[in-house]
């Protein structure tokens, strides 16, 4: 029986490791088995793998130690145990080592976090000149996304509108304009360049989540929150609400369509055409 437990605790971590390596091929990994579709997302994936490496190594080390101790006890039934309770030295070591690792992770991820969350660290085109980290070539938000029970309403500035500074963006966010374009559950964005949206909610808390772009942000009542990403590949990305926001939460499935800049502009033009349709010629073709 003693050897059973040695065997069990030796095999169990091996099985876990095996499962861990097999997971990606079983689609138990990042969404759709894909690497992140944004540069920042790839950095986030890098952090994930780093932490996985650290915890993995710790897990394997502790398991080896555990199996060794069990095995020693099983083999040497005569020997006397060494009682070590209250070892100051040991306690200092097992406090300082994990604390050091945690501190390292905390410091190491700060850049990624700042790039993801802090406006001044957004790519330069997304921060207006005059702001901290600002840039003369300011492109402003591509859209305002408003979550509501149970859909996403999207408002694009007119393709003719040029934002020169943050004040103009704030004005636009406060005051919907007659030339704004509107869609529901369908957010288009150009690929390659960094794009920014402003997220808000009309009712309860929702959360904006596009797994393949590694973008996740709560929409909080009263706040208007900027989010940015840089999609590397044209595609239709699944976009869901990831905050249980009510009985119809599951209905908040939408899509982010990343497309080359020309296609994106063509989309806005066709949207403008349909939104200002007066039905005079097109009605018969409906």
């Amino acid at each position: 029986m003693k050897y059973f437990w040695v065997f069990f605790f030796a095999v169990f971590p091996l099985a876990v490791l095996g499962l861990c390596f097999a997971a990606p091929s079983m689609n138990w990994w990042f969404p759709y088995g894909n690497p992140a579709m944004t540069p920042l997302g790839q950095q986030i994936d890098g952090l994930f793998y780093l932490i996985l490496g650290i915890t993995g190594a710790t897990f394997v080390g502790t398991q080896i130690a555990l199996v060794y101790v069990l095995w020693r006890g099983a083999v040497d039934t005569e020997g006397k145990a060494h009682f070590s309770h209250g070892s100051h030295e040991l306690e200092v070591i097992w406090t300082i080592v994990p604390a050091g690792i945690l501190l390292f992770i905390a410091l190491y991820q700060m850049d990624v976090w700042a790039n993801y969350r802090i406006k001044a660290n957004f790519p330069s085109g997304l921060v207006a000149a005059g702001e901290e980290g600002g840039h003369a070539e300011f492109s402003g938000p591509i859209a305002e996304v408003t979550a509501r029970q149970f859909e996403w309403r999207i408002r694009y500035p007119s393709p003719d509108r040029v934002f020169h500074n943050e004040r103009e963006v704030r004005e636009w966010l406060r005051n919907p304009q007659p030339d704004d374009l509107h869609t529901v559950n369908d957010l288009h964005s150009p690929t390659q360049e960094p794009v920014m949206i402003y997220l808000r909610t009309e009712d309860v808390q929702h959360s904006f989540f596009v797994p393949e772009l590694r973008v996740k942000q709560d929409a909080v009542p009263g706040l208007v929150i900027p989010i940015w990403w840089q999609a590397l590949k044209p595609d239709e990305y699944e976009w869901t609400c990831t905050e249980l926001c009510g009985w119809g939460h599951y209905k908040m499935k939408a899509r982010v369509v990343a497309e080359p800049a020309e296609d994106y502009e063509a989309f806005l033009e066709s949207l403008r055409e349909s939104q200002f349709d007066d039905g005079f010629q097109t009605a018969s073709a409906e």
């Binding site: 003719d160 004005e171 304009q177």
Partner: peptide
């Protein structure tokens, strides 16, 4: 009606639109 200025207003006429106090949401 939803806009303080007629629909023909210039897109960047911030002064005209600033008069409307409420936020969109």
């Amino acid at each position: 009606l939803p806009y303080e200025t007629p629909a023909a207003s210039a897109p960047n006429d911030a002064a005209a639109t600033a008069a409307k106090p409420t936020a969109a949401g």
